[in-house]
């Protein structure tokens, strides 16, 4: 079953062309990985799927569950079940992690959430992610270390249970233990009905995951698609042979 289908997508950041005819199809239950050199457009892809106002679609189409979502606002896309773990999560003073997640959950669910069950789930998830429980009452991302910010993104993913989770360099800047925690979070979330799109520079995060496809993104286009062996190849040899194609 098709979940996300991107057709011949051209995207600009300001006046600069970033994505230049990108195609990508993700089915339910799959884990996709996108690798590529700096500046290839990896983060742009993640951000345009959620309609970041800093980027603009010039042409092409993004379909989600068979419906064109080009005109949908960011929050509408999120409520349809698309999630993005940010590379640098925003600090928002004055809103606690718990209250923020409650608001997000309430925005998505039709029925008001049950506070007790919600809190219990949150506590359990935090425990599994090795997060200090005190973080739930702290202001959203304010003063969090890089690692805690990323774990907080995974925590949000587990709470909101999206259909498609896009992880934009969630592993970058993390130590080995934290990467393992993030992988664990992904495995906790993953089932046959949902999908994951991982944007990464390294294969460490992939080791404990069952990856279906690996795509190489160079200069705004996917130039090669393969399986996890392609990721290992890149790890060893770099992108050189794909850059001058």
């Amino acid at each position: 079953m098709e979940l996300l289908n991107i057709k011949n997508l051209f995207v600009n950041a300001g006046n600069k062309e970033i994505l230049k005819g990108l195609n990508l199809k993700i089915n339910k239950g799959e884990i996709h990985v996108i690798m590529g050199p700096n500046g290839a457009g990896k983060s742009t892809l993640a951000n345009i799927i959620l309609n970041n106002p800093a980027y603009k679609i010039i042409s092409g189409e993004i379909d989600f569950e068979g419906e064109n979502i080009n005109e949908l606002k960011t929050d509408e896309r999120a409520r349809k079940g698309i999630f993005m773990s940010f590379q640098t999560p925003e600090e928002v003073p004055g809103i606690s992690v718990t209250n923020f997640l409650k608001a997000a959950k309430n925005a998505k669910e039709k029925e008001p959430i049950k506070i007790f069950a919600f809190k219990k789930e949150l506590e359990e998830n935090m425990k599994k992610l090795n997060m200090n429980p005190s973080y739930s009452t702290r202001d959203l991302n304010v003063g969090f270390s890089g690692g805690e910010k990323k774990k907080n993104e995974i925590l949000q993913m587990l709470t909101l249970k999206p259909k498609l989770a896009i992880l934009d360099e969630t592993d970058s800047g993390l130590d080995v233990d934290a990467i393992r925690t993030v992988s664990k979070g992904i495995n906790m979330y993953k089932n046959s009905e949902n999908s994951v799109l991982i944007i990464t520079h390294s294969t460490k995060i992939l080791q404990e995951l069952k990856v279906d496809y690996v795509h190489i993104l160079v200069d705004g286009k996917i130039v090669k698609t393969g399986t996890d062996s392609l990721a290992s190849e890149i790890e060893k040899e770099g992108y050189a042979k794909y850059i001058n194609m």
Binding site: D75, A78, V92, G94, I95, A103, A107, K108, L160
Partner: peptide, 23 residues
């Protein structure tokens, strides 16, 4: 944008940020 990616409407996202500012 960050708040909206979590499903919160633009209006509510702004109000949340203002309330957070006043917190």
């Amino acid at each position: 944008f960050y708040l909206m990616t979590r499903g919160i409407s633009e209006e509510e996202a702004k109000a949340m940020i203002v309330r957070g500012f006043a917190n």
